[in-house]
């Protein structure tokens, strides 16, 4: 469904992605991991054409990204942005309904089908009871779930999530990722999630891609990617990796004490970009 080949993206002279290649099929949830500034968000921005690549290509279901109109693209891929600006005055329902934008012509307004899609999305994200509230009255977690609901209302085959769990408590983290995984498995969506938390990514994603300084440095099953050696070189700190007692998936925790020494060994703290 999604095919990225040799993608290179630069902001001015700063190269954010170098020759990144990956593919994603229907029903699959791909986790993109890596340190701050490794290019996770840029990858999502490139797939939604917010930045133009210097080289390489992106295909959606075999179609070159550039050949799609903005509206067609938005019917293919929905995005849950990292820190979306949402005016306080909009209600939850209004925000969720905006997910229907690519499905509506200029002369159309939302019909029964759109409202049904939005209702389902709100119910799936457990925000149905908030429908009449204004965004300004919501907690951070509630806001994030509304944004996920908006992306679901978009009813796209591809779901792109940029740190969808960053502001959520553990319960809501689990709820959101469970939902995403269930959408992939059950409804055949393809999901690509940039996730900060390695253990969380490992638990929910079928496959992981690890980025560091714009390059792919590891790809495969979570067990293959999350090796202590790779993590130590990428994050500049020693980590412990052990298997989850129930799922067998890797769980990663930093080793206390010598993380500073590790950072110093890696050069400087300045390599961490925010």
């Amino acid at each position: 469904m999604l095919e990225v080949r040799d993608l290179t993206v630069a902001y001015g002279k700063l190269v954010a992605l170098r020759q990144v290649s990956l593919s994603l099929g229907a029903g699959e949830l791909l986790g993109v991991v890596g340190p701050n500034g490794s290019g996770k968000s840029t990858l999502i921005r490139a797939i939604t054409r917010l930045v133009r690549p210097l080289g390489g290509y992106i295909r959606l279901d075999g179609k070159e990204l550039g050949s799609l109109s903005q509206r067609e693209l938005a019917r293919w891929a929905a995005v849950v942005p990292q820190r979306p600006y949402l005016p306080d005055v909009f209600t939850v329902l209004e925000v969720a309904l905006m997910g229907r934008t690519p499905h509506l012509g200029l002369l159309q307004s939302e019909g029964r089908a759109d409202l049904a899609a939005v209702r389902r999305a709100l119910e799936q994200t457990d925000t149905w009871q908030l429908a009449g509230r204004r965004m300004g009255e919501l907690s951070g977690g509630e806001r994030q779930r509304v944004v996920v609901a908006r992306a679901l209302a978009q009813e796209t085959p591809l779901l792109l999530l940029d740190e969808p769990t960053a502001h959520l408590d553990m319960g809501h983290q689990a709820a959101v990722l469970d939902l995403v995984r269930q959408l992939c498995r059950g409804e055949g969506k393809a999901g690509l999630a940039a996730i900060h938390d390695l253990s969380l990514a490992s638990q929910y994603c079928d496959r992981l891609v690890m980025l560091n300084e714009g390059r792919i440095v590891g790809e495969g099953e979570p067990e293959e990617v999350l090796s202590p050696q790779l993590l130590a070189s990428v994050y500049g700190t020693r980590v412990s990796v052990f298997s989850h007692p129930l799922t067998g998936r890797p769980v990663v925790t930093p080793m206390s004490g010598d993380s500073r020494a590790g950072l110093e060994a890696r050069g400087s703290v300045g390599t961490f970009r925010s």
């Binding site: 921005r45 109109s69 509206r71 938005a74 929905a78 979306p84 005016p87 905006m98 934008t101 690519p102």
Partner: peptide, 23 residues
């Protein structure tokens, strides 16, 4: 007047509007 709904979407930031299919 045709663009009322699109202008609502534009009240989000431009990136979100773009990702929602607005040129």
């Amino acid at each position: 007047l045709l663009y009322g709904r699109i202008l609502n979407v534009l009240q989000l930031d431009e990136e979100q509007a773009q990702q929602l299919g607005v040129n």
